[in-house]
Design a protein around this nucleic acid. Sequence first.
DNA 1: CATGATAATTAACATGGATTAGTATCTATC
DNA 2: GATAGATACTAATCCATGTTAATTATCATG
Lengths: 257, 257
Amino acid sequence: MAAPLEPLADRALVTPLLAKLQTRARLSDQDRDNLHSLYADAREIGARRSIIREGDRPEHVHLMVEGWAARYKLLPDGDRQITAFLIPGDFCDLHVTILGEMDHGIATLTRSKVAFIARTRMEELTERPSLAKAFWWSTLVDEAVLRSWIVNVGRRDAFEAVGHLFCELYVRMKNIGLVDHHRFELPLTQEEIGDALGLTSVHVNRVLQRLRSEDLISFRQGLLTIHDYRALEKASGFNPNYLHMDRRVDTPTSIKP
Amino acid sequence: MAAPLEPLADRALVTPLLAKLQTRARLSDQDRDNLHSLYADAREIGARRSIIREGDRPEHVHLMVEGWAARYKLLPDGDRQITAFLIPGDFCDLHVTILGEMDHGIATLTRSKVAFIARTRMEELTERPSLAKAFWWSTLVDEAVLRSWIVNVGRRDAFEAVGHLFCELYVRMKNIGLVDHHRFELPLTQEEIGDALGLTSVHVNRVLQRLRSEDLISFRQGLLTIHDYRALEKASGFNPNYLHMDRRVDTPTSIKP
DNA sequence: CATGATAATTAACATGGATTAGTATCTATC
DNA sequence: GATAGATACTAATCCATGTTAATTATCATG
């Protein structure tokens, strides 16, 4: 339960999780209080640290508060395939209660803040239909993103795939208020980008050069600027419909991180 | 509501849906009756017919009763990426109520029987916690399968990818009682296999030849026989853990289709 | 500021799978 | 059982991406 005397200021605060869930769901003040209470046990985790491993049966649900993490699977030969990038407001393992055992691992990419939420607390929350529905929506969008990644890896060439990934991350980051003037933190190495798209870091490098030479982006020191979003969208065949946000991407939002 | 005088014989019948959901969930007789009632409005659909298209806001949830279908996305250049094969017992679009608009299409591959279920009926059913949980489990497994496909397309070579797909379909078909002596109906053209794995039909053909020449499979006239499952599993790096079935794959089951 | 660690870049070469263009075989239909 | 349309199979060529490895840039830190 949330503390009884939650200050109003806290209610005004829009966390990434809240921003994300409000994309589609209408949430009451009490829903918001409940969501804020999830941050109670937020822990700092260093960069490149494991959050959960394949085979684990974790006691907690994990929620990204700050920083980036990746969901990945390892192959027998040591290759790694990243299947999702997790940004603030994303749950790492909403499902683990039902599936039992993790079939993949999750690790931070940057120094992060991760909220640990007891499974029972999660179950309490999902008894509220509004929150259950909001979480359900969020899971379904995750699924739609996975489908889109299959297309990216299966049918787009490297140039399109990188462009598409950048468009997706731009929209997702914008949705939680973390884009400023077409610019956002993208703390990924070229190898990590390659591990997400089934490419080598060498080839990712080639593609990035081309994206820069065509004046579509700047990308240095973990900051990505998209100079011409429409052109990038077109060059990569990006259509944001699968992210299921009603808001127009270009509408400025007043979300504060 | 199920008919009040459902004959007992019907209760004994194990449909693919029931077989699948019982993999993990314990279901009461009433749950089963409710599930059987979903088949009330089952319609025949010819091969290669659209079930839903991208952009649709369907009135019904669709459930595969017989036959095969595919979930796919089309690219601007006309390329197609299949993101899932749907077999009996699979829901096509459990999510559409919440996401609103389809971000991909679904079409039959063979002549099929598809149950049409009113959205309101679905909502009634999910008020039963046992069924809500069973559906939730099924959605999460679908998500795990998507992750696995990303690995398949992103990191495995064509030979491994085809082998991996065959292993997955073998386990899924076995789970709903449609495998007989390591042999099951796989009514996919080489082009459809390619569209699922990001390969051309020409290359799929080469891979199939190799799988045959290594005595791993037979595949003709829509029937796949896996001669050496363990070897195929090994050659393709298949690990069934992501399908989250407790049952051992090799345990014979008594399910009748 | 020297030291190492990590990441980005470049280059030379190798290759898996695409492309194209067939031929052969199957299946359905009249 | 003749015909047409799908599907399966084969072969030659090409290119996007992988591989390997060396060089440079960037970053953290004692």
